[in-house]
């Protein structure tokens, strides 16, 4: 914007940008500010006339080790889900971008995006039907295999991971696909002409050049999964207590909004710290 010199141009720029900023203000900044305000209250103003300002909600996180444990558990879950999304999604994107052409690519794309089109609750309950004891998956396996198999996946951490990976996989596929698509096929041909094997091409050309897209996808998965609550609650059952479900409980069950808000902002801070720590790596990947 430094090269915009005339006041008229500047005025036009601000006019054109104002709807976007207005929207951000109303939709993001105001609700977040309200939540930040709530997180410092002893009680919600409409419930208790003697509400006051306190740091106690934040102190609660430190004094009760459960919250720290759950935070660690949620971070571990997010790392696991992100890794699986990368391990499954990147090869998918690679095949979509570089091996398949024409109508087959469109059809596969549709299947990748399909989870986005279905309601997330429907999706999760579908997984419940598939994963539960004597469910679709177990019956299918027992129908094929001669001996009896008991999976008992329902209400385990594995079930939570499966559900989350399925929900967030498209992010990694789409961002990686776009990055891989942008890699000129001539680069691959050039590497082949110099004798490079497929693995070398992947390691030294495709992966470095598509890393920004892959990392963007990883961030898009990691951040929401840390705070996820629906999948853990429905698929995790007794095992499904995570940081996100505790926050949800504060809002809808215990009705302790100030604590829920405080826990949310602690999570936000932790995520920001993690991303900031990773940003040198992310930056280097862009050059």
């Amino acid at each position: 914007m430094a090269d915009l010199v005339t006041p008229a141009e500047r005025r036009r720029l601000y006019t054109l940008l104002s709807p976007a900023y207005l929207w951000l203000m109303v939709a993001v900044f105001l609700p977040l500010s309200a939540m930040l305000f709530f997180s410092f209250l002893t009680d919600m103003p409409q419930d208790a006339p003697d509400w006051g300002v306190t740091l106690g909600n934040y102190a609660e996180f430190l004094s009760n080790p459960t919250y720290g444990t759950l935070m660690a558990k949620s971070l571990k879950l997010a790392v696991t889900v992100t890794l699986f999304c990368i391990l499954i999604g990147y090869p998918c994107a690679l095949v979509l971008a570089k091996s398949i052409k024409g109508r087959a690519r469109e059809a596969l794309f549709l299947m990748v995006i399909l989870p986005f089109w279905s309601n997330s609750l429907v999706r999760i309950f579908s997984w419940a039907i598939v994963l539960r004891g004597n469910g679709v998956l177990e019956r299918a396996i027992n129908w094929v295999l001669p001996f009896d198999v008991r999976l008992n996946l329902m209400f385990t951490t594995d079930a939570v991971v499966i559900g989350l990976v399925h929900s967030y996989l498209p992010y990694v596929i789409l961002t990686s696909y776009l990055a891989l698509q942008a890699v000129d096929d001539d680069l691959i041909d050039a590497a082949r002409s110099m004798g490079a094997s497929k693995l070398t091409i992947l390691r030294r050309i495709l992966l470095p050049l598509s890393l920004p897209g892959l990392l963007a996808g990883a961030v898009l998965v990691f951040v929401p999964v840390v705070g996820s609550f629906m999948e853990p609650r429905i698929l995790g059952g007794r095992m499904g207590t995570y940081y996100g479900t505790v926050i949800e409980d504060q809002f809808v069950a215990v009705y302790n909004w100030p604590l829920g808000a405080a826990l949310s902002f602690i999570l936000l801070a932790v995520v920001i710290v993690i991303l900031a720590a990773a940003s040198p790596v992310l930056k280097r990947a862009q050059t």
Partner: peptide, 21 residues
């Protein structure tokens, strides 16, 4: 014999230099 094993040198219309190297 596939291109990787033919021991040829090739130059492309758009140069095809690896931008990350």
């Amino acid at each position: 014999v596939p291109v990787e094993k033919r021991d040829i040198g090739m130059m492309f219309q758009n140069y095809a230099l690896f931008p990350n190297m």
